[in-house]
């Protein structure tokens, strides 16, 4: 493989850069790395295993008396038959409901769920009419998830894309290790929300607990109410017109626009003081840099 300088790499497009660095574009069951890197890629549904579903084809699944595995297997089987809208009835706080859905689907859960509801998803639009337990929507890649009532802790842990919305309040550590996408909380959020956040945006219309945004690498947190305290290396930044426009658009989209608008929101970003805390010792720098 030919050597590539840093300057040459910077001048390249993402696709060229991945190729130049030796990452092949060879298809691996339908997906290559540079496709995944493309931030403009809107369609994430072109996987060979993704079933073609029709949103107008609707059915119900009664979870009563079924195990989580049986319900999840039912969802997959119905999607394979082309059902694009599936309603889960009587979920009764089941854990891991609707996890691992990797294609388009309208999933409506009539009731409340336990831990890890709709985690590890890539594409579906989900509406849960009740409450959810811990780690709802964890590691979601794309799609939308709407929770009508309250959510437990670690809401949207490590999400990488999509919109995760809770109309009520959520527990602590919301958006921990968040890597992209948007989390919107209509009420309050608990302590350590946005801990080690990397990318994406979190909107809290109510109050935020202690140590908000602790050790965040990057990303943005907007808080409409009071912030109990900011964490290490989380600092307040100016709310620009761009921020206000984005907040207005997003909150209007989900019918969560506060009566007093968005001008009162506080914006929290990374102070970036910890970005290079561990870096090389002076003698190493002499040798290497």
């Amino acid at each position: 493989m030919a050597s590539v300088s840093d300057a040459e790499l910077k001048a390249m497009t993402q696709e060229e850069r991945v190729k130049a660095l030796g990452m092949t574009t060879e298809q691996l069951t339908g997906k290559s790395l540079y496709m995944e890197f493309d931030p403009d890629a809107l369609e994430r549904f072109e996987y060979p295993w993704a079933p073609v579903v029709d949103f107008n084809k609707r059915t119900e699944v009664d979870c009563d008396g079924k195990t989580t595995t049986e319900v999840n297997e039912s969802i997959r089987a119905l999607m394979a038959e082309g059902y694009g809208t599936i309603v889960l009835q009587n979920p009764r706080g089941m854990h891991s409901l609707g996890v691992g859905i990797l294609s388009k689907l309208n999933l409506i859960v009539e009731g409340s769920t336990g831990y890890f509801a709709v985690g590890l998803i890539d594409g579906p639009n989900v509406r849960i009419t009740g409450r959810v337990g811990w780690s709802c929507g964890e590691n979601m890649m794309s799609g939308t998830v709407m929770i009508e009532k309250n959510a437990g802790s670690t809401f949207g842990a490590a999400i990488r894309g999509g919109d995760l919305v809770c109309r009520g309040s959520v527990g602590s550590r919301t958006g921990i290790d968040m890597k992209g996408g948007t989390i919107i909380v209509g009420g309050d959020t608990g302590a350590l929300s946005g801990f080690m956040m990397q990318r994406g945006r979190m909107v809290v219309c109510g109050n935020a607990g202690k140590n908000l945004g602790d050790s965040m690498y990057d990303g943005t947190i907007y808080v409409g109410g009071e912030i109990r305290s900011c964490g290490v290396d989380a600092v307040e930044a100016e709310l620009t017109q761009l921020d206000k426009d984005w907040l207005t658009r997003k909150l209007t989209q989900y019918g969560m626009m506060p009566e007093k608008g968005v001008d009162h929101f506080t914006k929290i970003v990374a102070g970036k003081q910890l970005w290079n805390y561990d870096n090389l010792e002076p003698n190493e720098k002499k040798l290497i840099l």
């Binding site: 985690g119 670690t154 805390y277 870096n279």
Partner: peptide, 23 residues
């Protein structure tokens, strides 16, 4: 750039991973 993009991090930072799982 490439490693940063895979990990959703700013390029060139000293990455210190969390010791606890997030969820």
């Amino acid at each position: 750039d490439q490693v940063a993009e895979m990990r959703s991090l700013p390029a060139g930072i000293d990455q210190r991973s969390p010791a606890r799982h997030p969820d």
